[in-house]
Amino acid sequence: MDLYTQIQIFVWAVDSGNFSAAARDHDLAPSTVSKAIAHLEKRLNVRLFYRGPHAHTLTEEGRSYEHTARDVIRAMAAAETVGESLPQQVAGVLRVHTMATFAKHQILHRLPAFLDQYPELSVEIQVGAQYVDLLEKGVDIAIHSGVLPDSSHVAYRLGEAEWIVCASPRYLEIHGTPREPSDLLKHRCFNFAFASPWNSWSFRHNDEIVAVPVKCRASFTQGDLLRDIALADEGIVRLANFHIGNDIADGSLVPLLTEFQLPLREPVFLIHADRKHTSPRIKAFLDFFREKLSGAVW
């Protein structure tokens, strides 16, 4: 493992709070993270972290090294984009952070055409369920839904997601179709495994907004797992139409309680750092996906 990779993993471990979380966030084996930090400590001949049972905190030497490590990451990101020195040249590495479901169902099948259009550009897709401001840490573009925190970044509204309560026809055949929101309490429901407004199943009933405390038999950190368990005829889920729009269209999933649906839509934003100095690679991605997604139903 090269030194730059060790430094990158060190920064990830600092941001995540412990080695296991860093491994999970970046799809690495926990042993890979531990070994990278150990190699770095051996190279520097200092201890960088205090290792606790639930969290790892930086030592004094670790805090000093963090500043240098982040400088290295920023310098490497700048070096990788040196091909953009010509104003119209679209080249280098473009880093995009978005929801896994959005990447899979809205970006993945459109990405080859984008890469064919810009052969000197490579794209790195990073995924996470919730928006985290990574634009100061080497990420160029973020695509996320919901209310964004105040910042100096530029946010372009790509569209609006509607959250749909749904189940498979087979599940409804076996267990019956809920006719009003309170009927959900009698059904097997599934939700996200982290605190999120997506877990609030609210409806309009008798001119009032009612939040149904559905009893979730299992929960998941990824929306695709919720989709999979619904498609397997195991229960009821609530997911965004940019995720399950095709399943609804082909009848694999059936919308439920539509007459009680709140007329609320969640905005989906494309976020980048600077309006005045947008690099050619970022502008190319913005223009391409704005056009391609403008015709999407959601």
Rank of each mutant, 00 (worst) to 15 (best):
281 R>M: 05
270 L>N: 03
216 C>T: 11
178 P>H: 05
69 A>K: 09
296 A>D: 14
9 I>F: 10
49 F>K: 10
108 L>G: 06
17 G>F: 01
215 K>I: 15
14 V>Y: 01
99 M>V: 06
117 Q>M: 13
135 L>M: 07
177 T>W: 02
11 V>Y: 02
138 G>T: 07
75 A>C: 08
249 A>S: 15
66 E>S: 06
98 T>F: 06
60 E>R: 14
56 H>N: 13
12 W>K: 12
103 A>T: 05
174 I>H: 09
95 R>N: 13
195 A>P: 01
98 T>H: 06
240 A>L: 00
156 Y>F: 13
159 G>W: 00
1 M>Q: 11
151 S>Y: 13
115 L>N: 01
225 L>Y: 04
50 Y>V: 11
62 G>M: 04
184 L>Y: 07
48 L>Y: 02
67 H>W: 10
161 A>L: 11
167 A>Q: 05
137 K>Y: 05
273 A>H: 08
155 A>F: 01
139 V>H: 01
106 Q>A: 15
247 D>M: 08
234 E>G: 07
84 E>Q: 15
199 N>H: 02
116 D>H: 08
63 R>M: 13
164 I>L: 09
225 L>N: 10
212 V>R: 02
150 D>Y: 06
113 A>K: 08
109 H>D: 14
82 V>I: 14
128 G>M: 04
218 A>W: 01
213 P>V: 02
234 E>L: 15
122 S>Y: 00
103 A>V: 05
245 G>A: 09
46 V>N: 06
265 R>S: 14
33 V>A: 03
286 L>E: 10
203 F>P: 04
99 M>E: 11
172 L>V: 05
251 G>M: 12
198 W>L: 14
46 V>P: 00
286 L>R: 09
186 K>P: 00
4 Y>T: 11
144 H>A: 01
188 R>E: 07
149 P>T: 05
72 V>W: 09
198 W>G: 01
81 T>S: 14
131 Y>D: 02
144 H>G: 03
212 V>W: 01
159 G>N: 04
109 H>A: 15
11 V>N: 04
10 F>I: 08
172 L>K: 11
213 P>T: 05
170 R>Y: 10
124 E>Q: 14
200 S>Q: 13
116 D>W: 01
75 A>L: 12
294 S>K: 11
275 R>Y: 04
68 T>Q: 06
100 A>N: 14
122 S>P: 00
298 W>G: 09
227 R>S: 11
97 H>D: 13
162 E>L: 13
290 R>A: 06
89 Q>D: 11
154 V>L: 08
253 L>T: 10
175 H>N: 15
56 H>V: 00
223 G>T: 09
161 A>Y: 04
272 H>W: 15
254 V>G: 06
93 V>H: 12
266 E>K: 08
14 V>N: 04
141 I>C: 08
101 T>Y: 03
194 F>Q: 03
282 I>G: 01
97 H>R: 09
108 L>M: 12
81 T>P: 00
289 F>L: 05
33 V>L: 08
68 T>K: 10
201 W>G: 08
268 V>K: 03
185 L>T: 03
188 R>S: 12
75 A>W: 09
245 G>S: 08
66 E>T: 13
65 Y>V: 08
257 L>V: 07
41 E>H: 02
10 F>H: 06
193 A>V: 00
188 R>Q: 12
281 R>T: 00
173 E>R: 14
76 M>T: 13
169 P>A: 09
134 L>W: 12
295 G>N: 06
41 E>A: 04
164 I>F: 03
2 D>E: 15
